[in-house]
């Protein structure tokens, strides 16, 4: 998986720490500490929440002002009247419109393909017995450690050779299925899919594809949804390889934002409007599916 983030999807959630393997402790969700929170807990959490949200809120404030105002002290603390004007400027002049479309296409394709192939591979690792399966699983986990920097020079040369420079497939293909996704689905299916169910289906004469379709996919559905959300966030935000492979003629959102940052638009308010627009789809996703995303990260961390 190429990621420029910390997230090795790698950084992404969270193969369960090896050390836990041995201790089969009973899993009681919420059993840890059920002390009621006092007022101080709420106050401290409120402060951290403010730190979490303030930069985003301020992005919207800055995006609603103009460049002159943003250069003055004190900085604006409340909204101005230019939000839609600036967003329009970002959409048209900077080409964020094209970028949003491209990113939707790229992240959408990656999400569908990653969820599908990760579920298949995760199912094989979770429930099927085959030679070298544990070694291959270990290899899969190991690949999450490799930084994207190790791949970009040859990929760049090959894509140039193929005449693919600046085309969207260059950023789609390398991420069609990820180690993180495979491991994530494996962790889920180990627990959620009863082996007897697969055996029963086979006794009835179902072939592999039928087993996958009628038994594995229905059992995996909740985890597939969460993996889809996490993958979309990752793909939308991917940075290193896209800024190498694409230019401002055919950018994804992150490539366009990188262009904004390197200064061909001098208007800070338009830049902030661009940052806001580029983040908006994910903020909406968090608003709608925040609970599922949180659950996915937490489950990825402890299952195993």
């Amino acid at each position: 998986m190429t990621t420029s983030d910390l997230t090795l999807p790698q950084v992404d959630p969270a193969p369960k720490p090896k050390g836990d393997r041995g201790s089969r402790r009973p899993r009681m969700i919420g059993a840890g500490r059920q002390l009621h929170a006092g007022p101080i807990t709420y106050v401290v959490l409120a402060v951290f929440s403010l730190i979490s949200l303030a930069p985003l809120l301020w992005t919207a404030i800055a995006a609603s002002r103009d460049n002159t105002r943003l250069a003055q002290t004190p900085p604006p603390l409340w909204f101005g009247a230019n939000l839609f004007k600036n967003m329009q400027a970002a959409w048209d002049e900077v080409g964020l419109g094209t970028a949003m479309l491209n990113s939707t296409l790229v992240a959408g394709t990656i999400t569908i393909s990653t969820v599908l192939f990760s579920t298949l591979a995760g199912f094989a690792f979770a429930k099927l017995r085959f030679k070298f399966s544990s070694a291959l699983l270990l290899l899969t986990i190991g690949t999450m450690m490799i930084p994207p920097q190790l791949a970009v020079v040859p990929l760049y040369l090959w894509m140039a050779d193929l005449g693919w420079s600046n085309q969207l497939q260059t950023v789609i293909l390398p991420t069609l299925v990820t180690a993180f996704g495979t491991f994530f689905m494996r962790q889920y299916l180990v627990q959620a899919l009863p082996t007897e169910l697969i055996e029963a289906a086979r006794m009835d004469g179902a072939n592999s594809l039928r087993v996958v379709w009628h038994v594995v996919f229905p059992a995996a559905r909740p985890a597939m949804a969460v993996l889809g959300l996490l993958t979309f966030v990752f793909a939308w935000n991917d940075f290193l390889w896209p800024i190498i492979a694409l230019n401002q003629q055919n950018p994804t959102v992150q490539v366009a934002l990188n262009g904004l940052g390197t200064g061909y638009v001098p208007d800070q308010a338009v830049i902030m409007a661009g940052a806001l627009l580029g983040t908006l789809p994910l903020l909406i996703a968090f608003l709608l599916f925040g609970k599922q995303i949180v659950g996915g990260i937490m489950n990825g961390a402890i299952k195993g």
Binding site: D5, P55, L56, W58, T59, V233, G261, G278, T279, G290
Partner: peptide, 17 residues
């Protein structure tokens, strides 16, 4: 969800801000 919100912000967007 509130604590996780910054995670939705890309490196590029966050750094510009």
């Amino acid at each position: 969800v509130v604590m996780l919100t910054p995670y939705a912000t890309s490196v590029a967007a966050a750094t510009l801000v």
